[in-house]
Lab assay of single mutants.
Amino acid sequence: HMTFVALYDYVASGETDLSFKKGERLQIVNNTEGDWALAHSLTTGRTGYIPSNYVAPSD
């Protein structure tokens, strides 16, 4: 899985969403939902949907 870094803070709007903080590292599990991606946080160990425009690929 590619690793991504959060560009902004995001507060989950539902139970299936994943909250994260700017700078948090995430792995995209499934990116077939258009503007949303299923992601796993390497920081918190949690998995949920995130807005895909809130993250960018990290080196």
Rank of each mutant, 00 (worst) to 15 (best):
H1I: 13
H1F: 14
H1M: 13
M2K: 12
M2S: 09
T3A: 07
T3S: 08
T3H: 10
F4L: 07
F4D: 00
V5T: 09
A6P: 01
L7S: 05
L7G: 04
L7C: 11
Y8S: 07
Y8R: 09
D9A: 05
D9N: 06
D9S: 07
Y10T: 00
V11R: 07
V11H: 09
V11E: 12
V11M: 09
V11T: 12
V11C: 11
A12K: 05
A12I: 03
A12S: 08
A12V: 04
G14V: 09
G14H: 10
E15S: 12
E15L: 11
E15T: 11
E15N: 10
T16D: 13
T16L: 13
T16V: 08
T16Y: 15
D17A: 09
D17G: 15
D17W: 11
L18I: 11
L18Y: 04
L18F: 09
L18V: 07
S19Y: 04
F20A: 02
F20C: 05
F20V: 09
F20I: 10
K21Y: 07
K21A: 09
K21M: 09
K22D: 01
K22T: 06
K22P: 03
G23L: 03
G23R: 01
G23T: 01
E24T: 01
E24F: 02
E24S: 01
E24H: 04
E24W: 03
R25M: 14
R25D: 03
R25N: 06
L26M: 08
L26A: 00
L26I: 10
L26R: 00
I28Y: 05
I28M: 08
V29I: 15
V29Y: 12
V29G: 05
V29C: 15
N31Q: 13
N31I: 14
T32M: 13
T32D: 10
T32P: 12
E33G: 14
E33Q: 12
E33P: 10
E33S: 13
G34K: 08
D35H: 12
W36A: 03
W36K: 07
W36H: 05
W36C: 08
A37I: 15
A37S: 11
A37P: 09
A37M: 15
L38N: 02
L38K: 04
A39K: 00
A39H: 00
A39G: 04
A39T: 02
A39R: 00
A39Q: 01
H40W: 08
H40D: 01
S41W: 02
L42M: 08
T43E: 12
T43L: 09
T44V: 01
T44L: 03
G45D: 05
G45T: 02
G45H: 08
G45S: 04
R46F: 08
T47W: 14
T47F: 10
T47Y: 10
T47R: 08
T47A: 06
T47M: 09
G48M: 02
G48Q: 01
G48R: 01
G48N: 01
I50Y: 01
I50P: 00
I50E: 00
I50L: 03
P51Y: 03
P51S: 03
S52C: 15
S52K: 15
N53K: 13
N53A: 13
N53M: 11
N53D: 09
Y54G: 05
Y54P: 02
Y54E: 02
Y54M: 12
Y54A: 12
V55Y: 09
V55F: 10
A56N: 08
A56R: 11
A56K: 10
P57D: 07
P57Q: 10
P57T: 09
S58T: 11
S58N: 10
D59P: 13
D59H: 12
D59R: 10
